[in-house]
Amino acid sequence: MKRLLLWLPLAFFAAVLALVASGLIKPADRAIHSALIDKPLPEIDLPPLLADKPGIKGGFGGKPRLVNVFASWCLPCIAEAKQLMKLKEMGVEIDGVATADTTPAMQAFLAQNGDPYARIGDDRNRKVQFSLGSAGVPETFVIDGRGRIVMQHIGDVREEHLPELLAALEAAK
């Protein structure tokens, strides 16, 4: 028994070596895949940030919607505001998760860049952002009619991304 034990380190090392060899043959896939695709949207219950706009509590299911994780202090969010406004004009309903934000800053932001949001939830401590598996702002999620996440777009939405988002919204009906 004790003799066998002495060979244990070698056996362990052989296993590690085999593992590394497998890693060498199959190089790592470095793209980021969302772990939440095709999973139900985590429960969102966010109070309103602005007096004249509702917060986000349920209301998913039925018509597909976008959930946009954003912030007034985030500069790419300014860049994507124009595209979100276009989507709104096309009749897309967008919920905004305001990340670590304050009411006056948000008011200024919306006055400056337009307001494409149906609802804005106050995610001051970033709980919802994290539960969505979002690592930064902005990120945009497509939620289908059954309340499942069907797409995650990382980074600002640019003009060239619109067809892809619209297609996902169409397919999610």
């Binding site: 004790k2 003799r3 002495l6 380190p9 070698l10 090392f13 052989a14 070596l17």
Partner: peptide
Amino acid sequence: YIGGALALFGARVG
């Protein structure tokens, strides 16, 4: 190197 040394360990340390 590591495999060799661990094998030596297994064989000799007893």
